[in-house]
């Protein structure tokens, strides 16, 4: 295993870059981070119809998000891979296809996290803001979202660790992220496939384990502040 690392570390890290598009673990990271950064606003936008006052709007949004959440991610990847070029007449590089899919898929999950985060706040917060003269949008922006986002942090961190693992499906459409890079490597090193896959597993573990710890810490902190808020010091 050490020899593989010594020999191929650069390829595993960045793929064939700069001769080919960025690949390897670097692409995995870029996909995961940009996926989350873009999925956040998409998730917020998707949450708007979920909380609409109009029942048909709410029902339609629920249905779409329910569909996205109940179909395997691989299928979504294939849909975007084949359908988007057919519909738009342009084809995207595999990494971009993967990014679009991840953003929509995770946006759907994040929208649910957002709605739960908003609904968990006491009604009195909205009423206090309204009683001062804030409109619905300002109330959301200055009072509700800042608190909801803080409550959502642990869930968002665990969503990021899911996202890192989901990027592995890029291998199905030829995005040369970490998994694809290791698959290629295993093909080139007959008899050393097990070692290569063990390295791959270690790499994912090294990325996700710190996030797991971070999420746990945020959750503990959140519980502590929630407790203080419930029991004002006398």
């Amino acid at each position: 295993m050490i020899e593989i690392l010594q020999e191929y570390w650069l390829q595993l890290l960045i793929g064939g870059f700069p001769h080919t598009p960025l690949g390897g673990l670097a692409l995995t990271l870029v996909l995961a981070v940009s996926g989350l950064v873009l999925a956040m606003p998409v998730g917020l936008l998707m949450a708007v119809p979920l909380r609409s006052r109009l029942k048909p709007v709410r029902a339609l949004a629920e249905l779409i998000i329910f569909y996205i959440r109940s179909v395997p991610l691989l299928l979504h990847v294939l849909w975007v891979y084949f359908l988007l070029p057919a519909a738009l007449g342009v084809s995207f590089p595999p990494a971009i296809t993967m990014l679009i899919t991840l953003v929509l898929f995770n946006g759907a999950y994040i929208s649910k996290i957002v709605v739960a985060g908003i609904d968990a706040l006491p009604r009195g917060q909205t009423e206090a803001a309204m009683s001062l003269g804030f409109g619905p949008v300002q109330t959301m922006r200055f009072i509700i979202l800042p608190q909801a986002l803080r409550n959502m942090l642990p869930s968002l961190v665990s969503q990021l660790s899911l996202l890192i693992k989901e990027t592995a499906l890029g291998a199905a459409i030829g995005a040369t992220e970490a998994t694809q890079t290791f698959l290629d490597l295993a093909n080139n090193l007959p008899g050393q496939a097990i070692q290569a896959y063990a390295l791959l597993a270690l790499a994912y573990f090294a990325l996700c384990y710190p996030l797991l710890l971070l999420g746990r810490r945020l959750e503990r902190r959140g519980r502590r502040t929630a407790k203080i808020a419930l029991e004002p010091a006398s």
Partner: peptide, 23 residues
Amino acid sequence: TSEIRALRQGIGFVFQQFNLFPH
């Protein structure tokens, strides 16, 4: 109506549960 926002600015409200903004 949307005028309610401007009108509420002139009518202060103090709640039983305080409802301060904890953030």
